[in-house]
Amino acid sequence: MDLSLSTRTENGPAGDRTVVVVGGEIDVYTAPKLREQLIDLVSSGQYHLVVDMEGVEFLDSTGLGVLVGGLKRVRAHEGSLRLVCTQERILKIFRITGLTKVFPIHTSVDEAVAATD
C-alpha cells in the first residue's frame, strides 16, 4: 500500500497544532513524500506538529530518518513534533533505535494536542 497523507489544524491549550495523518507504508520509496510534507509545513510557519501514525502499516529506518529530520526542523523554530502510535510493531523500531527517548509518543491525537510540556 502506498503512503497517504492529510493534515488538519486542532486547537490545543498551548496553541494550534497541525495534525499530520499518515497511512500506509513508509519506506525508502515513499518517505520522500512525507519529508516534503513536513518541510512544506515548517516553511509555511507551522512549527507544532502531531504526526498520527495509527494508520501506518509499515515503517523502517528510512522513515525514522524523515521523522528525525522533521523534529530537527521544528526544533530550529522552537517548535515540537509529537507522535501518536499504539501499534506494537511500529513502536518496536523506535525502541530498537532508542528514539523513544527523542520523540514524545502519545496514545491519541487528543492527548498529543493537549500536551503542554
Partner: peptide, 29 residues
C-alpha cells in the same frame, strides 16, 4: 553504538538509507 545519536546526527539531505543505521537496526532486531 548509539542509534538515536546516529540518526540525529545523520543529515536529512538525501533519501538513501544510511548503510550503518540499517545494519545497526538489523543487529538489534
Amino acid at each position: 553504538r548509539d542509534l538515536s545519536a546516529g540518526l540525529l546526527a545523520d543529515s536529512d539531505g538525501d533519501d538513501d538509507a544510511d548503510p550503518d543505521i540499517a545494519l545497526a537496526v538489523l543487529s538489534g532486531l
